[in-house]
Simulated assay, not measured.
Amino acid sequence: MPPEHPDDDHGPRRVRVLLADDQRLVRAGFASILDDEPDIEVVGEASDGAEAVALARALRPDIVLMDIRMPGTDGLTATERIVGDERLADVRVVILTTFDVDDHVYGALRAGASGFLVKDTEPEELLRGIRVCARGDALIAPTVTRRLIAEFAGRVRRPDPGPRLAALTEREREVMALVAAGLTNDEIARRLVLSPATAKTHVSRIMTKLAVRDRAQLVILAYETGMITPGWLTRPGGAA
Score class of each variant (00 low, 15 high):
65 L>P: 07
126 L>I: 10
4 E>L: 12
235 R>W: 06
55 L>E: 08
108 A>M: 09
97 T>A: 08
124 E>F: 05
122 E>N: 13
188 I>Y: 01
202 H>I: 02
4 E>H: 15
18 L>C: 04
102 D>N: 15
77 T>D: 13
96 L>M: 10
52 A>R: 00
21 D>N: 08
11 G>H: 04
219 V>T: 12
43 V>D: 00
27 R>S: 06
26 V>R: 08
169 T>R: 05
121 T>D: 10
237 G>Q: 03
168 L>Y: 01
80 E>H: 12
233 L>I: 14
175 V>A: 00
235 R>S: 14
114 S>A: 15
76 L>S: 03
78 A>Y: 02
90 D>C: 05
214 D>R: 00
32 S>T: 13
200 K>F: 12
63 I>M: 04
86 E>S: 13
148 L>D: 02
178 L>N: 05
177 A>S: 12
236 P>K: 00
9 D>R: 15
182 G>A: 10
206 I>Y: 09
73 T>G: 06
195 S>V: 09
237 G>T: 02
16 R>Q: 11
154 G>C: 10
24 R>H: 13
74 D>S: 07
36 D>F: 01
101 V>R: 13
176 M>E: 10
29 G>I: 11
86 E>L: 14
126 L>N: 05
46 A>P: 03
8 D>L: 10
84 G>M: 04
176 M>F: 02
211 A>P: 04
40 I>E: 00
153 A>T: 05
135 R>T: 14
196 P>H: 09
147 R>I: 12
5 H>Q: 11
111 A>R: 04
147 R>D: 15
174 E>H: 11
183 L>F: 09
85 D>A: 03
231 G>I: 00
192 L>F: 07
121 T>L: 09
122 E>I: 12
88 L>W: 09
13 R>V: 14
26 V>N: 08
213 R>F: 07
41 E>Q: 09
225 T>K: 06
168 L>S: 07
199 A>I: 07
121 T>W: 05
135 R>L: 07
166 A>V: 07
219 V>P: 03
54 A>P: 09
157 R>K: 15
186 D>Y: 12
152 F>N: 07
10 H>Q: 15
71 P>D: 06
113 A>C: 11
13 R>D: 15
100 D>Q: 09
72 G>M: 06
77 T>W: 03
81 R>S: 11
156 V>R: 11
27 R>F: 01
67 D>F: 02
152 F>E: 07
110 R>K: 13
229 T>F: 12
74 D>V: 04
214 D>H: 10
3 P>M: 04
95 I>R: 02
158 R>S: 14
89 A>Q: 11
18 L>F: 01
204 S>R: 15
193 V>Q: 14
200 K>Q: 14
63 I>S: 04
30 F>G: 08
171 R>T: 13
222 A>K: 06
177 A>W: 06
148 L>S: 03
57 R>A: 13
90 D>P: 11
80 E>Q: 15
97 T>D: 09
16 R>C: 11
88 L>V: 05
236 P>N: 00
84 G>D: 04
115 G>T: 04
240 A>S: 14
233 L>T: 12
36 D>P: 03
229 T>Q: 13
107 G>F: 05
95 I>L: 11
106 Y>P: 10
48 D>V: 06
16 R>K: 11
